[in-house]
Design a protein around this nucleic acid. Structure first.
Lengths: 227, 227
DNA sequence: TGGTGTATAATTGTATACAAACGATCGTAG
DNA sequence: CTACGATCGTTTGTATACAATTATACACCA
């Protein structure tokens, strides 16, 4: 141990082995996607047996998924009285935006200095923007949303603050659901790329003040256009 | 329905029926307490069978607890390769503090206006401060920590931002663990009450700027005195 | 001697089965 | 007719059991 280590390390960017996520994680994602797409409705009661059947799994991994979502505030459960999907009214969207601003401003503040030191890290953002534009041009809004969240997740990752990343994962699920309830058209598709590119450029420049302003605008834009 | 409603409503402050938390929640709390007290060590591998035995329950609720803690970043798990307790080095404590400042400043900003409108809400904080001082006078640090976290949770609750409250619950577990690794003595006990009373007074006055400063100092104080 | 392949043990992932608690419905007494 | 109480069905909480994957140790071959 120690001799054959540098044989080919760092030959590829990351070479990440995405170990297939557990059934519980898959179920949690499926439920969130279901809420986002409107198949599952806010306030709806979730019966474990039914859901397990829908997702072709037994109750055990499904319950694990519900526990995850409960910890993240997506569903609310009262012991021995069942689980319901949380409500997503205008107030809550407001709250989500506020929390997002606070969290992302922190992530930006930390990551900006790192992006300035290591400009190669910007490649990660560029790749995501490209895939976002591709999805937007096809009006595939679910993929656009996922790319959007990936963009901000990448910034949290670069900030090297694991707590911020953890909190973001929770918040991202809420944002994804809000995205799903938005109405979007070709004009929205056209601005997705430029908007994120502007944030990318500000990160590259390291202009802290402008970043804070831009992020706030970027996030609050959502609050205006809801069903 | 409707006639016998006001028979004795509002006779007690809340009269909250704390439905016994599920075994999963109990297990999650127990694990966090174990990390905080040093029984479980950062980086340690958690074998499901062993832990379930220690906590006198089967693997199913224990696994639910691990999923919760994984979503909160307390433990890290690789599918089919087990679960480990996250590391809590100085860097991470730094990250926790930064996230705490961002989150609590948001909570304070929202709750301050409400405390000014409804001063009776301050009673909740006062009660917690009293119990905190009582625990501090006996040097029962675990109870002090719990009261401390309750104090800040109460502020998040009053801010009426459920997302902030959800994120706080996650962060609070990290903070609780950090508290556990602190060394505290009689001098610390003496300042617990006054420190929190100052925050309470600033909330009552609604001085936003002073609040932000005070919160930052209050939180960063921890970073100085660690093992 | 270093590396590769295989067998075994340990651990996690999932499913099934049972027990307990809750809500609702119906019946009965005042 | 109303209020209380019991019974039943549904749903959740938990335990046990089995399947699948992985790590480790050891033998074998270049």
């Amino acid at each position: 141990m120690g001799t054959p280590k540098p044989l080919e390390a760092a030959s590829l960017p990351t070479l990440s082995m995405t170990r297939s996520p557990s059934l519980a994680e898959q179920a949690a994602d499926a439920i969130v996607t279901g809420i986002s797409s409107g198949v599952l409705k806010p306030g709806q009661r979730l019966v474990e047996t039914e859901l397990a059947g829908m997702l072709h799994m037994s109750r055990v991994p499904l319950r694990e998924a519900l526990k995850i979502l409960e910890a993240q505030g997506i569903v609310e459960s009262i012991p021995r009285r069942g689980t319901r999907i949380a409500h997503f009214n205008d107030d809550r969207v407001d709250q989500i935006c506020k929390a997002r601003i606070a969290l992302e401003q922190l992530a930006m503040a930390t990551s900006a200095s790192r992006y300035k030191r290591e400009p190669s890290l910007l490649d990660g953002l560029d790749r995501i923007i490209v895939s976002m534009e591709r999805a937007a041009s096809r009006l595939e809004w679910i993929d656009v949303s996922k790319a959007d969240l990936s963009f901000h997740r990448e910034i949290c990752r670069v900030s090297e603050n694991s707590i911020v990343l953890t909190l973001w994962e929770t918040l991202a699920r809420h944002v994804f659901i809000v995205f799903g309830h938005e109405i979007r058209d070709e004009r929205d598709a056209a601005i997705m790329g430029p908007h994120h590119r502007k944030i990318r450029d500000l990160l590259a420049a390291g202009n802290a003040h402008a970043l804070n302003d831009e992020i706030e605008r970027h996030i609050l834009r959502l609050r205006l256009k809801r069903k």
